[in-house]
């Protein structure tokens, strides 16, 4: 019985803390996305600036590791039985990726544009712990172009 109570507490704490952290993070993401709205990141390799106008080109990257709360992890493992869209992981990955992109843009400083952007995700720490800790890294990288 105590175990059950303990479990319910974990779920409740996970839900409350997780929701709070997520809301806070999204607010920060929205704010910074507005800040960097004039620095486009594109997947294209070619630009239509003449070569002599480009002052420098430099690799920029950003990454973020985000973990999932107990509540969402539990919901996801339930989802594993029935199949279908794992909704509880969606916001986790979305946040990780947008955070990585924002950090890349922060690194780009006063560049005009970031080209040939690539985004990758990987789970980390899963092999160390067979229980499948919901820990995820997103990395974004590209070439920042600064105009003369």
């Amino acid at each position: 019985m105590y175990n059950l109570l303990f479990f319910i507490t974990l779920i409740a704490v996970g839900y409350l803390a997780g929701t709070f952290a997520e809301r806070y993070h999204y607010r920060s993401i929205h704010l910074r996305e507005k800040m960097f709205i004039n620095l486009p990141a594109v997947t294209m390799k070619t630009v239509d600036y003449p070569d002599d106008k480009i002052k420098s080109a430099e690799l920029v990257y950003g990454s973020a590791v985000i973990s999932i709360d107990y509540f969402k992890r539990f919901t996801a493992s339930l989802r594993n039985i029935f199949g279908g869209t794992v909704k509880s992981y969606e916001s986790l990955i979305d946040r990780a990726r947008r955070e990585a992109l924002l950090r890349m843009k922060e690194m780009a400083g006063d560049s005009r544009m970031i080209v040939n952007v690539r985004i990758e995700t990987s789970t980390i720490g899963r092999n160390a712990n067979k229980k499948g800790v919901g820990c995820l890294e997103a990395i974004a990288y590209g070439t920042a172009l600064t105009l003369a």
Binding site: I37, N38, P40, F71, L78, D94
Partner: peptide, 28 residues
């Protein structure tokens, strides 16, 4: 370049996690 932000987040399903949780738990 036209700077614009999308109006909604397409990558997150707009359902309540609590609902998902209870539906799944009860079916299990």
């Amino acid at each position: 370049y036209t700077p614009r932000l999308p109006k909604s987040n397409v990558n997150v399903t707009p359902t309540s996690m609590l609902r998902e949780f209870f539906v799944l738990t009860l079916s299990l």
